[in-house]
Simulated scan of single mutants.
Amino acid sequence: QEMLEGKLESYSGDLRRAAVEMAQSWRKDPTLQKLEAMVIAFNDQDLLLISGNGEVLEPDESVAAIGSGGYYAQAAAVGMLRHASGMTASEIAKEAVNIAADIDVFTDHEIVTDEIEEK
C-alpha cells in the first residue's frame, strides 16, 4: 500500500502510471519477488489488478476479485451488476453460479436451489 501511495504521489495521482511503475518495482525487488500477491487498485476512472509478476490488468467487467474465493466473489458481483434490479436471492445465486461455471472448469451449470419461506 505504501509503495502504491508513493508512486501515486510521484505521478500526480495518475493511477495507471503509478500501477505500472509499482509493478515494475515489485518485480525487480529481490525481497518482493518472492511475495506471490495481487493488489486491487481503483479510482473513479480505473479498476486495476496489479501482480507481483509485473502485470497490470484491467478487468473486462467493472468488477475485480482476488483470493481463494475470488472467482466466486467476482461471479456474484458480476451477476449483481448485470441484474441489479428486481432479482430474488435465488436468481442472483443462479446467475453467480452460471458465471462461475464460465470462469472455473471445476464448476458446472447444473444448479439446484432451495428456498426457505419465512413464517
Rank of each mutant, 00 (worst) to 15 (best):
D104H: 04
Q33I: 09
I66Y: 02
G67A: 09
Q33V: 12
D60I: 10
I116M: 07
A73W: 08
I92A: 13
L48D: 10
N43I: 00
K94A: 11
L48M: 10
I116Y: 13
N43G: 03
V39P: 05
A76M: 15
E58M: 12
A65V: 04
I40V: 13
D108L: 09
D46K: 01
E117F: 11
K94T: 06
E36G: 10
N43Y: 00
K34L: 14
T113K: 03
I99Q: 07
R82Y: 00
T107W: 01
E95T: 14
Q45R: 13
Q33C: 04
D46G: 01
S51H: 02
I103W: 08
L32R: 11
Y72C: 05
A41H: 03
A101K: 07
K94L: 01
D44P: 00
V105P: 06
A64G: 08
I40E: 05
A37I: 09
G79N: 11
Q74F: 14
I111A: 06
G70P: 04
G86W: 01
H83G: 11
D104T: 03
N43K: 02
N53V: 06
A101Q: 07
Q74H: 14
R82W: 03
M38R: 09
D44I: 02
A75P: 03
M87T: 11
L81F: 02
L49S: 07
V97Q: 05
E55V: 09
M38H: 11
P59G: 12
A101E: 03
A96H: 06
A100G: 02
V39M: 14
I116V: 13
A101Y: 08
A65T: 09
V105L: 07
S90D: 12
E91G: 13
E95M: 10
A75V: 07
V63E: 02
M87Y: 12
G79H: 10
E95F: 04
A65S: 15
A75Q: 06
A73K: 00
A76K: 01
I40P: 02
M80Q: 08
D114W: 12
V63M: 09
D44M: 05
K94C: 11
E115P: 00
S90T: 15
E115Y: 11
A96F: 06
V97E: 01
L49D: 00
E91Q: 15
V78D: 03
I50G: 00
K94G: 02
E61W: 06
G52A: 07
A41R: 01
A84V: 04
D46R: 00
A93I: 15
H109Q: 13
H83L: 08
I116T: 11
A37L: 14
V105N: 04
K34N: 13
V63Q: 01
